[in-house]
Design a protein around this nucleic acid. Sequence first.
DNA 1: ATAGGGTTAG
Length: 787
Amino acid sequence: MCLSSRILNGKTRYFSTLRSSHTENKCILSVPVSSLSHHHLPILLSRATVSGLLLKLPLVHSVLRSLSLGPTPSLSFSFLSLLRRFANMTLDNYSLNIAISAAARVPSLDVGSQFHALSLKLSLASDSFVLNALINMYSSCNYPASARLVLDSAPRWASDVVSWNTIIAGYIRGGMPNKALQSFHQMAKEQVRLDEVTLLNVLVACARTGAMKVGSLCHALVVLNGFEINCYIGSSLVSMYAKCGMVEEARRVFNRMPERNVVCWTSMIAGCTQSGRFKEAVDLFRDMQIAGVKADDATIATVVSSCGQMGALDLGRYLHAYCDGHGLGKELSVKNSLIDMYSKCGDVNKAYQIFRGLTKRDVFTWTVMIMGFAMNGLCVEALDLFAQMEGEDKVMPNEVIFLGVLTACSHGGLVEQGYHHFHRMSKVYNLVPRIEHYGCMVDLLGRAKLLAEAEQFIKDMPVAPDVVVWRSLLFACRASGQVGLAEYAAERIEQLEPKRCGGHVLLSNVYATTSRWVDVNNVRTGMGNSRTSKKPGCSFIEVDGCIHEFFAGDESHFETEAICNTLFGINELLVAESFLILLPPTITKGQIAQVIVDFLEVAVSCVVFLKGFYPPRAFERRRYMNVVVQKAVHPQLAGYIHSATSGLLPFIQKGLVERVVVIFYDKAHVPVEKFVFKLAVNQSYGSKIEEASLEFALRAFLIKLAVAEPLTRTLPSDGSWEIAAYFRSLPPDGEKEAQLWIPTDTKQWMQPPQITPIKSMSCDPVKMQLYLEQPSRTEPRDPPTEP
DNA sequence: ATAGGGTTAG
């Protein structure tokens, strides 16, 4: 037995409570609270009773409190029953409050409702502490309606703000934010004075429901009441505004906050991610590190999601490594967003590797992996995975996962399977298909060219078709040239969305495939005359870990059309030669380098042609990969390009070449323009690749190059040009193959160059980007803003 | 006594 205060090092709450409430500084057991277990209780009781300590009520309370707040709150129940049985103690309101709070912490509805009965029996249920503890207990056990019942059946004077705050929080926790808002209104009607916690909770409810008006009202109330915009209130304000689609307002609140912790930063970053401002999200993440605030798993999850959505693989990989270096990323949400990011960036193997390494998987995990397989064309794998999930029977499918399953069916042309899963969704899992699911089905039927069936399906839908549904149908009409149906769908879109450009582009494409060029023109000019405008598309390119964001401007519209038409032509060629798709020849890793080298030779030739550096007769029109290209035929020119590109073969095979650059100089040998081919060949990639898919990916570069001239600058006369290769690491001096390559002393620009992307692609294991580097113009060019 | 941010989507 220990009765000396010296031994109590004050480390645990149990001992410190004893000390603060008791001047005698006496201890009844020298075991820290964290290692107390049930078998200590009788000892505790007997020693306390013997020494007469526990019969003093404040001490009973402090022991109970310590047990209730400790790692095993249920100990307080046992101790209480021992006290009642052996020390004849009756429960007062305070002990009851502690016991109920312990039941909330476990949480145990069973024990909690027993204490509820006990408080009614002892007429203590109207004590405001007991009342609030009961409300909290039902809320914590996810019985918000019961919590509400307790409040409503108590006398008015017994409840206060805390009661209402707890009710509101309980509805939010139970996934009923609308009920939370209702309670807030009721609370106002009963003229209960709100406090900071009320507003904080209501802001969360607004964020969940998108109740923008109530949210702004809360903001006003924060200011009117003179509440400080601290980290708590600030975070929920930022989150509320972002979720209600008012990112600008969120940013304004964020910028004005006097103090910011991880949660504030994460709210703002997540706000950007959720509203498609991916680059801003990444920039904020950098600012956060500069501000010296450490990221946690929530931060990483949302930044990784941004990377995935803009295809920034390098940055995504950096974040992955950052996690490992900072002990982060252990939470499932981070793993999920990494799987999603790798899939979206085209590295399904890496995604699946992470997926397989997980011991725990939630709905998100399965959804992102199924989606990842589906979007990378591995449709059977996606369906197999869904079957595996159902077999494991640990995770309950939700609506979103079925979108992934249906997308897989749609992309894989698996009509039967699509119907099967669509029906199972409601029959087996009691999930009501939403408009998105109907959209998937229309897409599925349309892609399978079952247009009549798709049309009938739309007619039979229990929900009104939206623009996406009509667009899927309209898109499907293109392949079958069904002009009449296409026009009907376009009309529906026009009705639903008169201000947007709607189905015009798609409709004009249907006309184009049926060679109705007059109609194509009518639609196009109609678009220009009326106020319909296309929302600018946005793309990203990642250069040395730096993200560049681009909006499709009106100027580039003409080229877009040319590219689309060329692509349609290619599509038709592919359809005509569909045996290629049925029996795809595969090539090995060694052959990949050869394909790339051949491609580079042609591409460099096209670049030089495009710049008009030599007279056109130095080139010849040739067919390469089914597109028309300009191949150099002048002996010296062709010889230079051939030897330079083919000399790269051994280094590309070893994965040593990072960039192949065509540089144009002025007469002072200062670069005027660079065409950069950034290259990555994954060396660890094991399996073979389809030659057709690699060719298809590379061909897109040649098509883009053919129309890239307007993006480039006029060359000064008497300049020069050369082919340069940037190596990841330099080959040893003695190597024979390396002797062709000499270090170049290209002058550098003073300012970072202006980057213009031309094309990027990812076709495992090859990734390639083509972009222009030009010296910066003095005045920055703003991207066109959205209408 | 009650309290903030995060991952999937046709």
